[in-house]
Design a protein around this nucleic acid. Structure first.
Length: 140
DNA sequence: ATTAGGG
DNA sequence: CCCTAAT
């Protein structure tokens, strides 16, 4: 017996139709009601998920009788088809106060310093990352 | 971790 | 919002 190393690069992804197709769609089914969208966590969990997907290749050491070629079959390691942790964040239209805060922050810091903008006007708003602020400015 | 832009 | 090449 040999401990034959096999590297599975099967990415756990859903059909494009379900994931990307449209968070714009009105009928977009909201996240399962059981997962409370606490203002916290949702942001970080997304990052963790991203970091995980980045190295989506999971390795596994599998025992095999002989180094024959047929023993190299690739077997999916991912079980759950839809990891809850990787859920796309729910849509949250910017409120008028948020827009004002963003504008005022940019007036002082200017563009290109979204990290500081976030720190200045959205330091205690977990669901808005500096990338979100940058995107919002783009929209405005 | 941030920036900067396209997806 | 997401994804990600460059920094």
């Amino acid at each position: 017996w040999f401990w034959y190393p096999m590297v599975c690069r099967v990415k756990c992804e859903e059909p494009l139709s379900e994931t990307k197709a449209g968070y714009n769609s009105q009928q977009r089914v909201q996240a399962s009601p059981n997962r409370v969208q606490s203002e916290h966590g949702s942001v970080h969990s997304r990052f963790e998920a991203t970091a995980h997907e980045a190295s989506a290749s999971s390795q596994a050491i599998v025992p095999v009788a002989s180094p024959s070629s047929e023993a190299l079959a690739i077997v999916p390691v991912c079980k759950s088809k839809r990891p809850v942790i990787g859920q796309r964040r729910i849509r949250r239209p910017f409120s008028l106060p948020e827009v004002e805060a963003l504008v005022e922050a940019v007036e002082q810091l200017g563009t290109g310093r979204w990290r500081d903008v976030k720190m200045l006007a959205f330091d205690n708003t977990d669901h808005r990352t500096y990338v979100d602020l940058k995107d919002k400015w783009k929209t405005l």
